[in-house]
Amino acid sequence: MKKDVLLEIRQQYSFYGVLLYVISTIFVLYLAMGQPEDDVWNGLFWMIQLFVCVNAVAKSFLQESKGRMLYFYSVAGPVDFILSKLLFNALLMLVMSIMSLLLFLVLMGNPLRQPFQFVGLATLGGVSLSLVFTFLAAIASKAQQQAALMAILGFPIIIPQLLLLMKIATIAFSSVIQAGLGQMVLLLIGLDAMVIVLAIILFPFLWKD
């Protein structure tokens, strides 16, 4: 994790490249749509989160060369390695989620009636997306056409999670708290825990390869 942090500090073009992508995309949406209705605002926000996650997280494994992976194999264990990747990408996506939300509120208007709950959900959702795509990037890194394989594997898996996030997020646009909110949040946390457990169980087999 320390290595990834140092790389982000030294190679800031990567971070700023994703940030520029976020700003330009939201600005184009603002020029095209102005301040949309609540449902459209909610859907656009999560779609932006999805593509930001793909751009920010995919490079975590795709940028690692075979020689570097061999070095990591000699100095670290598979569980330590995958957990550090999951944690770093979760923190990176956490920052991106907050910045995306701030830009959305500035340019696309503020339809939120419960902003603090939406902030919490945006951070949780960003972490959830990062966990899934980090795990998929680890699988795709062992195959050819890695980026294409990650997209093929990722979007069928991520669609139910996105639908769940958008459904939970609707509470922030209403002054009435919906029934079953706690169960949906626990379901989302359970999905995150399942991804972490699967990564811990399955990544050692990829590690040996």
Score class of each variant (00 low, 15 high):
I201W: 05
A56D: 04
W41K: 12
L44M: 12
A147D: 03
T170N: 13
I139K: 02
A76W: 11
F205H: 10
L188V: 02
V79R: 04
V119N: 08
F61M: 11
I200N: 02
Q161S: 11
R68E: 15
L62F: 15
M150Q: 12
Q161T: 14
P160T: 07
G17L: 14
N55A: 15
P204C: 01
F88H: 12
L31H: 14
N89A: 08
V57I: 15
G67S: 06
M96E: 08
P111H: 07
P111N: 00
M69S: 08
S60F: 12
Y13G: 10
V95W: 15
K85H: 09
D4C: 03
L198N: 07
L70H: 07
M108K: 09
A58V: 06
L136Y: 00
A179D: 15
V119Y: 15
A143L: 12
Q161W: 13
F173D: 05
F133D: 10
E8V: 06
S174Q: 07
T170D: 14
M194E: 03
S65M: 03
F118P: 02
Q144I: 00
K85C: 02
L164D: 04
W207D: 00
Y21D: 08
L50K: 01
I9F: 08
A76L: 11
S174N: 10
G77S: 14
I168D: 14
I177H: 08
L136H: 00
M93Y: 06
A32K: 04
N110I: 09
V75T: 07
F81G: 03
L206K: 02
L6T: 13
A138G: 12
L198F: 13
M33R: 15
L62D: 11
K85M: 09
D209K: 08
I152N: 02
L91T: 13
A90E: 00
L153E: 07
G120Y: 02
F135M: 15
I26W: 04
L206I: 01
Y30I: 05
A172C: 03
L124C: 02
L91A: 13
V18N: 01
K167F: 04
G67A: 06
L186P: 02
V54C: 01
G120I: 00
L31E: 11
F45L: 13
I82H: 01
R68C: 09
F27C: 05
R68D: 14
K208H: 01
L29Q: 14
M99K: 05
E8T: 09
V28A: 10
A179R: 10
G109F: 00
K167P: 00
M99W: 10
F155R: 08
L101A: 11
V54N: 00
F205N: 07
K3L: 13
V95D: 13
K59C: 10
M93T: 11
L107G: 03
V75F: 10
L131N: 00
S174C: 02
L50F: 13
V57P: 03
G34A: 02
W41H: 08
V119F: 15
Q144G: 12
T25P: 04
F45H: 05
